[in-house]
Design a protein around this nucleic acid. Structure first.
Lengths: 156, 156
DNA sequence: GATATTTATATCGCGCGCGATATAATGTCA
DNA sequence: TGACATTATATCGCGCGCGATATAAATATC
C-alpha cells in the first residue's frame, strides 16, 4: 500500500479515512496501551487510572471542591461523583458540604490517602520506562498534545 | 510555581507526580477532547467513536474476522463483540461464522454500512480543523505516538 | 420579601473497555 | 482414534465517561 502522507501534498479522502493515518486513532490506541500498563502497576493498590488521577490532584492540593477537580481533569461531575464515592468507600478521601456554600462539596485526603502518595511514587518512572524516549522527547510530545487539547476543547 | 521540566535535569518525584507534567495525562485529557468533538459530528448518524473506528476498518477491508479487527483496533474481543452486535442491530454490518473454521466470525458491510462511508467523508477534515496545526505537525505527532504505543504494548 | 435565574452536585441509563470465565471448534500427539 | 492443548468468540460484572434530568442552594431582579 502507499505510504502514509508525509509531505504537504493534500491527502485524498480515502487516505484520510485510513485508520493508521489518523492522529485521533493514534491517541486512542496509545491510551489503551497506557491504561494497560497502569493496570499492571495499580492493581495491587486496588486503584484504577482515573482514581489515581484524582489522587494526583489531591496530593498536589488538599481540600478542594468537586468542580475544581473536574476542571483539572477535564471531566464532567457526572463522571466524578461516582468515582469520588468509590475512593471514599476505599477510605482514601473524605467529602463534605462546604459551610460557606452548601452547593459545593469539599474533597480532602484521609491519612491513608496521604500515605498512598509515597507508596506510588515509583509509578511515573515505570510509565516513563514503559514509554521509552528521552525526557526531552517526552516533554515535547506532552506540550504538543496540550496544545491540541486546548484547540479541541475550544472547538467542542 | 516552577515551570515544568524542559531540560535534561532529572525531575524530582514531586514534579513527576504533578498532573500537568505527565504525558499520560496529556494523552488521556486530549482523548476526552477528541471524543467530545466526534460526538458532535457523529451524533446525527447515531454512531459512537469506537463504532466509527470499526466502520473505518471495514471500509478499508470488507469480510474480515473479529480477531483481525481486534488486532487493528488494539481491543479485546470482550469489547468488540458487544460493539459489533450494536452495529449489526443498526443494520450497518453483518456477522456470520466462517465455513472453514467455525470458531471464527466474519464481519462484513451491509449496503447501508457501505453507503455511510460517503456520508461521513467530511469527518476527518472536521477533526483536522478542530485540532489545528499543519499537516506536517499532525503527521509528526501521530508518528511519535505510534512509536510510544508500540513500546507500551510491549511493556504491558 | 417573593420570584426567577443561575450554579453545584446527584442520579439514571447507555456505550464502552477489560479481566474473569464459559463454550465450542480446531490442532497436536501418543 | 481418543485425549489433551490451543484458539476464537460469547457472557458477566465492574469502572468509567457523559448526555439528560433532578434537586437544592445561592444570587439576581422586581
Amino acid at each position: 500500500m502507499k505510504s502514509p502522507p508525509t509531505s504537504s501534498r493534500a491527502p485524498r479522502v480515502a487516505d484520510k479515512q485510513k485508520l493508521e493515518n489518523q492522529l485521533c486513532f493514534a491517541l486512542y490506541s496509545t491510551l489503551l496501551g497506557v491504561n494497560k500498563v497502569y493496570r499492571g502497576l495499580l492493581r495491587e493498590f486496588d486503584l484504577t487510572y482515573p482514581q489515581y488521577l484524582v489522587m494526583l490532584v489531591l496530593w498536589e492540593r488538599d481540600q478542594i471542591n468537586v468542580s475544581e477537580i473536574c476542571e483539572q481533569l477535564y471531566l464532567e461531575t457526572t463522571t466524578l461523583t461516582p468515582l469520588l464515592k468509590r475512593l471514599e468507600t476505599r477510605g482514601l478521601i473524605s467529602r463534605r458540604r462546604s459551610a460557606e456554600d452548601e452547593r459545593q462539596v469539599i474533597v480532602g485526603l484521609t491519612e491513608e490517602g496521604r500515605a498512598l502518595r509515597q507508596q506510588l511514587k515509583h509509578v511515573p518512572d515505570c510509565l516513563g520506562a514503559a514509554m521509552g524516549g528521552s525526557l526531552d522527547d517526552v516533554v515535547e510530545l506532552r506540550d504538543k498534545l496540550t496544545k491540541v487539547r486546548s484547540k479541541l476543547f475550544q472547538a467542542a
